[in-house]
Computed example of a mutant assay.
Amino acid sequence: MNAFLDKMRFWIPAHAPAWAVKASFAVWIAYKNLTMPQQKKSFGPLNQDKTFYVIRLYPPASGFLADYNYVLGYMKNAYDHGWIPVVDMQNYQTLYNEDSPIHGTTNVWEYFFEQPLDPATGKRYTLEEVYQSKNVILSNGSDQFCNYTGDADPEVLKWQHEMYLRVPFKKELTDYIEKMRASIQIPADMDLIGAPIRGSDLGKRFYGHAIQTTTEETIELLKTRVEAWSHEDRKVGIFVNSEEQTAIDLVRERFTHVYCTNSVRFVNNESDKVNRVADLYNKISKYENILQYLTNIYLLSQCDSLFGTMNNGYYTAIIWNGGKFSHLETIDKGTYN
């Protein structure tokens, strides 16, 4: 996609009237389906008794956890058909591909996650092997197999958690998460309320996306939750995550036990000049940006309770938690129109 079209697909939902957004979405989906339909291919003689399903997203795809949740849906589709999924973010590039290999790979998926598991053999296949195999299906580049930022449907969350378990974190991500968790130094007798506060792109009008609570709204609501969700024998703290440093600072001013990572964040209204959180990679590399992002979302998923407004990060934390939150409360302010 050229730079102009990439810019327009973010400008239109932020500025155009609803009818124009709907029309442009319809045209865009039709164009993607026409130019990247599902296809059957034969690339070589290997694995003649297996069918592989190459998961590809229409370049340059979308925000990282939107991409991730698309992949979970494609994985379920593959398993439901008896196919073996493999994710290709190398030949079908995303917003997050680096110019040089990361951990020996140019496949963005493999920067952070293992390839999906073949339950029949316990094996994970490489792109190199798949592209030498006899039976290969290239996915449609834009299918959405569930509304992953709508209501947190228990049955949908169940299979999404199962898909998550089949694509575990790479060792480098796991090690980084553990390093960040240790640096926060959370007391053993402390229960945490996870409080994501989304600013930057989702703090502005973006058609169809959930309207986010402001920092002040979140703080006022948190006051009652800290009291209601406390236990007699345990302290209650807040793990706050935001790409806006101002939000972190305000929560720290209002509460005693506040924890966060030392991730790079927007300061001094920098996010007013960007369209998406991905533009943090102007401050750090794209890889480091997503490494920090995934770490914060995982730490949210491990809190005792979670409280916030729907977006891909918040929803992914719910998937990764697997239904273990003592309290889960989603604030619904409606969607932008």
Rank of each mutant, 00 (worst) to 15 (best):
I290R: 05
L291D: 01
V267E: 15
R265S: 00
L280M: 09
F307P: 10
Q292S: 01
K283D: 02
V258T: 00
L294Y: 00
C303R: 05
L280F: 03
Y259K: 03
F266A: 06
S285P: 03
V251H: 01
S263H: 11
E270A: 12
I297T: 13
F266Q: 10
D279K: 08
V277C: 10
Q302N: 14
C303V: 05
E288M: 10
F307Q: 03
R276Q: 13
K273T: 15
N262V: 03
D272L: 12
V251R: 00
Q302M: 12
V264C: 02
V267N: 12
V258M: 06
I290T: 10
N268P: 10
A278V: 11
R265F: 01
T261Y: 04
R254M: 14
T261F: 01
Q292V: 05
V264D: 02
R252D: 11
H257V: 07
T261H: 00
N296L: 08
N262Y: 06
N262I: 03
F307V: 08
K273C: 11
N289S: 12
L250G: 04
Q302V: 11
K273P: 09
N268F: 03
S301V: 11
T295P: 00
F266K: 04
Y259W: 03
V264T: 08
V264E: 05
Y298F: 09
S271D: 15
L299G: 11
S301M: 08
I284C: 06
V277W: 08
V274Y: 02
I290Y: 00
